[in-house]
Design a protein around this nucleic acid. Structure first.
Length: 218
DNA sequence: GCCAACGTTGGC
DNA sequence: GCCAACGTTGGC
């Protein structure tokens, strides 16, 4: 996935709002997500919380003349809710974005880099709104097919929550994803090209435990 | 920089 | 609406 910091943090949902939003958000929440562990702050009105995994590239790469590099440290330095993501241009990823609720938590994954892996966590602080950067010819992920009257793409706003003492690398994730293992059904391992994927509550808790254990080893 | 996997597009 | 061709992702 790609992201850009170019979209102003002040971007707001407009009255136009995503037309498909109603249908995507109307779908039932994941049944697999039982009671959320007490790991965050606000939860949605229904008391449930969903979990996600979002990819960004921590190393420089130019898209339409713009460096799309964005790491967990870049997010940690932000003082305002950060729009994520000006670069999601695949429907499966977008639909996951649109299903996110305020208070949901997400892993931050470093992709397309020397040491890919999960490096920390963030919280969804504002639900989806149209990705207006898609209409900007100078934006890294300009999409001439998206019309301002009917925006195709979406962003959510996130805030930094934590950076792991040591990342959980892709190699380890794959080992944990073997038959009968804790991450056997993890979406990011099954659909490795998806830049926004679902994480179920058991996977979230398991990986949070791995991250904690890693911190105490240090 | 190679290329496998897989999502998207467009001809029919 | 099938599916071959094409484009992109992202690990290596």
């Amino acid at each position: 996935m790609r992201r850009s910091t170019r979209q102003p943090a002040t971007a707001k949902p407009t009255a136009v709002a995503d037309k498909a939003a109603a249908s995507t958000t109307a779908k039932p929440r994941e049944n697999g997500n039982a009671v959320a562990p007490d790991l965050g702050t606000a939860t949605g009105e229904d008391g449930e919380r969903n979990y996600w995994l979002l990819k960004a590239e921590p190393e420089s790469r130019f898209e339409n003349g713009v460096d799309v590099r964005f790491s967990i440290d870049d997010l940690a330095a932000k003082t305002e809710p950060e729009p994520w993501d000006a670069g999601i241009r695949a429907y499966a990823a977008r639909n996951n974005l649109r299903a996110m609720k305020k208070g949901d938590l997400a892993f931050f994954y470093h992709s397309n880099c020397k040491e890919p892996g999960i490096v920390g966590t963030m919280e969804i602080v504002q639900e989806h709104s149209p990705d207006l950067s898609a209409h900007d010819p100078d934006a890294p992920y300009y999409d001439p097919k998206s019309k301002p009257s009917d925006p195709k793409w979406s962003v959510v706003h996130v805030k930094f929550r934590s950076k792991f003492a040591a990342q959980i690398g892709l190699k380890e994730l794959r080992e944990l994803g073997g038959p009968g293992r804790p991450l056997e059904n993890m979406q990011m391992l099954k659909q490795s090209r998806l830049s926004v994927s679902k994480v179920n509550a058991a996977e979230w808790e398991y990986l949070s435990g791995v991250a904690e254990a890693r911190a105490s080893e240090k």
